[in-house]
Lab assay of single mutants.
Amino acid sequence: MDVFMKGLSKAKEGVVAAAEKTKQGVAEAAGKTKEGVLYVGSKTKEGVVHGVATVAEKTKEQVTNVGGAVVTGVTAVAQKTVEGAGSIAAATGFVKKDQLGKNEEGAPQEGILEDMPVDPDNEAYEMPSEEGYQDYEPEA
């Protein structure tokens, strides 16, 4: 019985440690998101679009440190934060509304985080759909 109880105690310690790591990862992701939003706020009209992409990228980098179902929630929060940063930029006159959601080359930025393969159960990952990809044929 002692062996059984000791095993359960060790398992509990492992769960607590994993929860603490997840909590730490979420806190880091939130900190990076805040950094990115402050970065966007300090940019001029020309830099705002690039700044919004930076927020998304920093958040995406930190999301990889967070495991399990938390990833889905962090990704949703990050996307809403990026959308909010863009709205703030438009409201303050840093950028025109028609410039939001495009990178410096004018290509749409939507789907940055949505296409990231995420499995809350950590069982399997699927690649994003290939609808947006084109076949590449090298020139002879």
Rank of each mutant, 00 (worst) to 15 (best):
M1A: 00
M1Y: 00
M1S: 00
M1N: 00
D2S: 04
D2L: 13
V3I: 04
V3K: 02
V3N: 08
F4M: 03
M5I: 01
M5S: 05
M5H: 00
M5Q: 00
M5W: 14
K6F: 01
K6H: 04
G7W: 15
G7M: 10
L8T: 00
L8V: 04
S9C: 13
S9Q: 12
K10T: 04
A11C: 15
A11Q: 00
K12Q: 07
K12W: 13
E13N: 11
E13P: 01
G14V: 10
G14W: 04
V15P: 00
V15Y: 02
V16I: 14
A17V: 07
A17C: 10
A17W: 12
A18N: 00
A18E: 00
A18K: 04
A19K: 03
A19C: 03
A19E: 00
A19N: 01
A19P: 00
E20Q: 10
E20G: 02
E20I: 12
E20S: 02
K21I: 08
K21L: 11
T22V: 13
T22Y: 05
T22C: 15
K23M: 06
K23F: 06
K23H: 05
K23D: 00
K23S: 04
K23N: 01
Q24D: 11
Q24A: 15
Q24C: 10
G25F: 14
G25D: 05
V26M: 14
A27Q: 11
E28A: 08
E28G: 11
A29T: 07
A30P: 01
A30W: 03
A30R: 03
A30D: 00
A30N: 00
G31S: 15
G31C: 01
K32Y: 07
K32C: 10
K32V: 07
K32S: 11
T33Q: 00
T33L: 06
T33I: 05
T33E: 00
K34L: 04
K34A: 07
K34I: 15
K34D: 00
K34T: 05
K34F: 06
E35F: 13
E35K: 07
G36Q: 06
G36N: 14
V37M: 09
L38R: 15
Y39D: 02
Y39G: 04
Y39K: 12
Y39A: 02
Y39Q: 03
G41W: 09
G41I: 09
S42L: 09
S42K: 15
K43G: 01
K43T: 05
K43R: 14
K43V: 14
T44R: 02
K45R: 12
K45W: 15
K45Q: 03
K45S: 04
K45D: 00
E46S: 12
E46M: 09
G47M: 10
G47V: 13
G47D: 08
G47T: 15
V48E: 00
V49H: 04
V49F: 12
V49M: 15
V49G: 04
H50V: 03
G51E: 01
G51F: 10
G51A: 12
G51W: 13
G51M: 13
V52S: 02
V52C: 09
V52A: 07
A53G: 08
T54M: 11
T54S: 07
T54F: 08
V55N: 00
V55E: 00
V55P: 01
V55A: 06
A56R: 15
A56G: 03
A56V: 13
E57P: 02
E57K: 09
K58F: 07
K58N: 09
K58S: 05
T59D: 00
T59C: 12
T59P: 00
K60W: 06
K60T: 02
K60E: 01
E61M: 11
Q62G: 05
V63Y: 11
V63R: 03
V63N: 01
V63Q: 01
T64D: 05
T64L: 11
T64F: 13
N65R: 13
N65F: 04
V66E: 01
V66F: 07
V66S: 01
V66D: 01
G67W: 15
A69Q: 09
A69F: 14
A69W: 11
A69S: 03
V70N: 01
V70F: 02
V70I: 09
V71S: 04
V71G: 02
T72A: 13
T72N: 11
G73N: 15
V74L: 12
V74I: 03
T75L: 11
T75A: 15
A76P: 02
A76Q: 12
A76F: 10
A76S: 08
V77L: 15
A78N: 01
A78V: 11
A78G: 07
Q79E: 06
Q79H: 11
Q79W: 05
Q79N: 09
K80Y: 15
K80G: 03
K80M: 03
K80V: 05
K80R: 07
K80W: 13
T81A: 15
T81H: 04
T81R: 02
V82L: 12
V82D: 01
V82M: 13
V82N: 03
E83D: 09
E83I: 15
E83G: 07
G84D: 03
A85E: 01
A85C: 08
G86A: 08
G86C: 11
G86E: 09
S87F: 14
S87P: 08
I88C: 05
I88W: 09
I88V: 03
I88E: 01
A89Q: 05
A89R: 12
A90E: 01
A91F: 13
A91P: 04
A91S: 04
T92K: 04
T92I: 03
T92F: 02
G93Y: 02
G93F: 12
G93K: 05
F94T: 05
F94L: 11
V95H: 04
V95P: 12
V95F: 15
K96A: 12
K96C: 10
K96S: 11
K96P: 04
K96H: 10
K97Q: 15
K97Y: 12
K97E: 08
K97L: 05
D98M: 15
D98R: 08
D98L: 15
D98N: 07
Q99M: 10
L100Q: 10
L100A: 10
L100G: 08
G101P: 08
G101N: 02
K102R: 04
K102S: 01
K102G: 01
K102Y: 01
N103R: 10
N103F: 05
N103C: 12
E104A: 15
E104K: 12
E104M: 10
E105N: 13
E105H: 01
G106A: 06
A107R: 06
P108H: 14
P108V: 05
P108L: 09
Q109V: 07
Q109P: 02
Q109Y: 12
E110G: 08
G111F: 11
L113A: 13
L113I: 15
L113G: 13
L113Y: 08
D115T: 09
D115P: 04
D115G: 09
D115Q: 11
M116I: 07
M116E: 12
M116T: 11
P117K: 09
V118G: 11
V118F: 13
D119Y: 01
D119Q: 05
D119T: 12
P120Y: 08
P120D: 06
P120R: 11
D121P: 07
D121W: 04
N122H: 12
N122C: 14
E123D: 13
E123S: 09
E123A: 04
E123W: 10
E123I: 12
A124K: 15
A124E: 14
A124F: 13
A124S: 12
A124G: 14
Y125R: 13
Y125M: 02
E126Q: 02
E126K: 14
E126Y: 06
E126N: 14
M127V: 12
M127I: 11
M127W: 09
M127L: 05
P128R: 05
P128S: 05
P128T: 06
S129M: 08
S129G: 11
S129R: 04
E130I: 06
E131Q: 15
G132P: 04
G132Y: 09
G132E: 05
G132R: 12
Y133M: 08
Y133S: 05
Y133Q: 15
Y133F: 08
Q134S: 05
D135S: 03
D135E: 07
D135H: 06
D135M: 03
Y136G: 03
Y136A: 05
Y136H: 08
Y136I: 10
E137N: 06
E137I: 06
E137D: 04
P138C: 13
P138L: 04
E139Q: 08
E139A: 07
E139Y: 10
E139S: 12
E139I: 06
A140F: 11
A140Q: 04
A140S: 15
